[in-house]
């Protein structure tokens, strides 16, 4: 059982680090999806070991919302790409503190 926990932790860390260091928008979006997916693993794992169905239910909602978020993220990258012809944050982010 523990191995699954470590696997989920690893995937989550992969996603989190990826969002911080990746240099193009699509990869960042993929890393966010990775984070959400690893949380699904946590939920499934905990609800199996605790014998409660509450969290398994949450998995479905998380999947749906992750899909919605991915769709809206992709559409926004498309909108920006049409203007700037680039999907790299370094070219795009004009604001700075």
């Amino acid at each position: 059982m523990m191995i699954y926990y470590y696997l989920a932790c690893f995937i989550f860390a992969l996603g989190l680090v990826g969002t911080l260091i990746k240099k193009d928008l699509i990869s960042i979006l993929l890393c966010i999806e990775l984070m959400l997916t690893s949380v699904n693993l946590f939920f499934a794992l905990f609800s199996k070991s605790l014998g409660s169905a509450d969290a398994q239910l949450q998995v479905f909602f998380t999947i749906i919302i992750a899909a919605a978020e991915g769709a809206i993220g992709i559409s926004m990258i498309m909108a920006l790409f049409r203007k700037i012809k680039s999907a790299y944050p370094d070219d795009i982010l004009i604001y700075s503190e």
Binding site: L16, L25, M35, E69
Partner: peptide, 29 residues
């Protein structure tokens, strides 16, 4: 451009915090 960029920033920040929050919720559970 500015508006599209604002939206994109919002999505990326939002996605990461949603992930962190879910991580918290899953461990509380």
């Amino acid at each position: 451009e500015k508006s599209a960029e604002a939206g994109l920033k919002y999505v990326l920040y939002g996605g990461v915090t949603a992930g962190l929050m879910l991580f918290g919720i899953s461990h509380i559970f």
